[in-house]
């Protein structure tokens, strides 16, 4: 049995006029079932690009990506849709709830597209909402909830389809530190219960709570290892202004 997620020499190259942007520049890594991995790096280092490929929302320019042992990098739109539906749960920085649907309907969406019959759909969506402690708000519209609550709804939506991997791109980016810790604790709890979690952050204090850190710079991996290793949070290159606040956050 191979890895759950495996990148082999993955490149993502954007053509911007005459220049080429190597958002991912020959990336290799593997993630096994049950891991909790944080992908960190400066802004523009390629974190979201990597996440989008893992999430089958995008395809690599070259290289191969195996999910559950299957090469998904060459699949077409609809085949990828099935993979997204069955194997992946997304948590976005901007929550990405559909405003005109209520909380329950939002959480039901992945089940709807998975062809789950209405009754079961409702039950599973309600139990997912129960897990994030929002079962009583199922009739509310997203805009009637706080940011933290909306993020919990989006977590419930990610859980509802029973995915193999939970992908979170800056899930705490729009939340205060207290709520961020709550969300993070929740992801850790899910991981303890057996879910594989991949988290993107540029907040080191959050990254260190993962078990493993992958650090990207200019589309390449410059560190991949244990989160408790002091090396994991060290910034090797300090020539960028943005790095100042990243270092500041280490001390939080």
């Amino acid at each position: 049995m191979g890895h759950l997620i495996e990148f082999q020499q993955v490149y993502k190259i954007y053509q911007m006029g005459d220049t080429q942007v190597h958002a991912l520049d020959g990336v290799n890594f593997a993630i096994d079932k049950g891991e909790f991995v944080a992908i960190v790096g400066q802004s523009g280092s390629g974190k979201s690009t990597a996440m989008n490929i893992i999430g089958c929302l995008d395809v690599p320019t070259s290289g191969r990506y195996f999910l559950g042992g299957v090469d998904v990098s060459t699949m077409d739109d609809d085949q990828q849709a099935v993979i997204r539906n069955k194997m992946l749960g997304f948590i976005f920085q901007q929550y990405n709830l559909i405003p005109k649907l209520n909380v329950l309907e939002n959480v039901e969406l992945p089940l709807l597209y998975g062809g789950v019959p209405q009754r079961e759909r409702r039950e599973r969506a309600l139990s997912a909402l129960d897990r994030v402690g929002l079962a009583d708000k199922y009739k509310n519209r997203p805009n009637q909830l706080s940011g933290g609550q909306q993020q919990r709804v989006s977590i419930a939506r990610a859980l509802a389809g029973n995915p193999s991997v939970i992908l979170a791109d800056e899930p705490t980016g729009a939340l205060d530190s207290h709520t961020s810790r709550e969300v993070l604790s929740f992801l850790k709890k899910l991981n303890r219960e057996g879910d594989t979690v991949v988290l993107i952050t540029h907040d080191n204090s959050i990254a260190v709570r993962a078990r493993r850190i992958i650090r990207l710079q200019d589309g390449q991996i410059i560190y991949d290892g244990d989160a408790s290793d002091p090396q994991a949070v060290v910034q090797p290159r300090m020539d960028d202004d943005e790095d100042d606040d990243l270092c500041g956050e280490v001390g939080d």
Partner: peptide, 12 residues
């Protein structure tokens, strides 16, 4: 985009 990320196919 959201619907597609959740598994909506083209025909959906």
């Amino acid at each position: 985009g959201i619907r597609k990320s959740l598994g909506a196919k083209r025909r959906d």
